[in-house]
C-alpha cells in the first residue's frame, strides 16, 4: 500500500447530484442493502469499494433503476436526482436511464457498427434532428471517450471487432452520447489489461469535467487514483464515506482500515 498515489486534486463541489437516503434493497428474502444514505457530488468521481458481495454493485444499479429488470428485487427509501425521487411513480425508468447512463463490467458493444453503437442512444431518445447533428454527437462522444483517433477511419466496421480496451471505451462513448447527468460504471476495467486500464482511468478523470461519475471498483489503487470521494461497503452496509484521501490515509472505521490494509476482502 505504500506506492499508492492519492489523487490530490482539489474536490470541486458543484453541489449534490444524487441524494440517497435510507435505501434498503431486498432480493426476495435477503436484505442486500441496509439503510444506505449517500450524497453523490456533481463533477466528481465517487468510488464504491468493498469486498465481493458487499452490495456495491447492487447499490449502483439502484441509482438508474437497472434493478427493475430483476423481478424479485425490491427497493425502499428515497433516491433524489436533482431533488426528484427516481422511484416516484411518475418516473419512467427508461427516461431516467437516459440521464443516468451506465457502463458495465464486461465491454458489451452491440453487434453493429461503431457508428451505430454510439448513435444508438441519441436515436432512441430522439436527441437529434439531422444526420449532421448525429454525426456531430458521434464524433464528440468518441472524442470524449478518447477513441476518435483510433476509429475515425472505420466508423462502419463492427464494434465487436475492436480490442477489449477499445470496446470498453466504445461503451463509454455510447453512454456519453445521450449526454447523461450521471455516469455509472460497474467495474469498468476488470476485464481489461493494464494498458487499457490506464487509458480508461485517464478517461474517467477527464469525464469528471462534464459529468458526475460513480465507479464501482475492486481495486483500491484504482479508487485512489481516479476518485475524489470514496464509499466503503461491507455486508450491505455503507461503512464509511468521505474524501478519498481521508479514507485511504486516515480511515475512521476499523473495518475500513482492515480492508484497505488487506486484512478483509
Amino acid at each position: 500500500m505504500n506506492d499508492m498515489r492519492i489523487a490530490d486534486r482539489a474536490v470541486d463541489t458543484h453541489g449534490i447530484r444524487i441524494k440517497a437516503s435510507a435505501v434498503q434493497v431486498y432480493y426476495g428474502e435477503s436484505h442486500a442493502i441496509k439503510d444506505v444514505s449517500v450524497d453523490i457530488l456533481d463533477k466528481a468521481v465517487t468510488a464504491f469499494i468493498g469486498p465481493s458481495g458487499c452490495g456495491k454493485s447492487t447499490f449502483l444499479r439502484t441509482l438508474n433503476r437497472m434493478n427493475d429488470t430483476i423481478p424479485i428485487c425490491k427497493v425502499q427509501g428515497s433516491i433524489l436526482l436533482d431533488g426528484e425521487n427516481i422511484y416516484d411513480k411518475r418516473v419512467d425508468p427508461v427516461q431516467l436511464r437516459a440521464k443516468v447512463g451506465m457502463v458495465f463490467q464486461k465491454p458489451n458493444p452491440f453487434p453493429k457498427s461503431i457508428y451505430d453503437n454510439v448513435a444508438y442512444g441519441p436515436r432512441i431518445h430522439g436527441l437529434t434532428r439531422s444526420k449532421a447533428e448525429l454525426d456531430g454527437i458521434v464524433e464528440s462522444s468518441l472524442r470524449k471517450a478518447a477513441l476518435w483517433n483510433e476509429v475515425k477511419d472505420r466508423l462502419h466496421a463492427p464494434g465487436t471487432g475492436l480490442s477489449g480496451g477499445q470496446q470498453q471505451r466504445l461503451c463509454i462513448a455510447r453512454a456519453v452520447a445521450t449526454s447523461p447527468e450521471v455516469l455509472l460504471m460497474d467495474e469498468p476495467c476488470s476485464a481489461l489489461d493494464p494498458i487499457a486500464t490506464a487509458q480508461v482511468e485517464e478517461l474517467i478523470d477527464e469525464l469528471r469535467s462534464n459529468f458526475s461519475v460513480v465507479i464501482v471498483t475492486h481495486s483500491m489503487q484504482q479508487a485512489a487514483r481516479v476518485s475524489q470521494k470514496t464509499a466503503f461497503f461491507h455486508l450491505g452496509n455503507l461503512v464509511e464515506y468521505g474524501e478519498t484521501s481521508q479514507i485511504f490515509t486516515n480511515p475512521k472505521d476499523p473495518r475500513t482500515e482492515s480492508y484497505i490494509t488487506g486484512r478483509i476482502g
Binding site: L127, G136, I137, S140, S141, R143, K144, W148, F211
Partner: peptide, 11 residues
Amino acid sequence: MSDISANGPAS
C-alpha cells in the same frame, strides 16, 4: 486527449 472540449451536447 486534448479534444475533450470539442463541440457537442454538453450537459
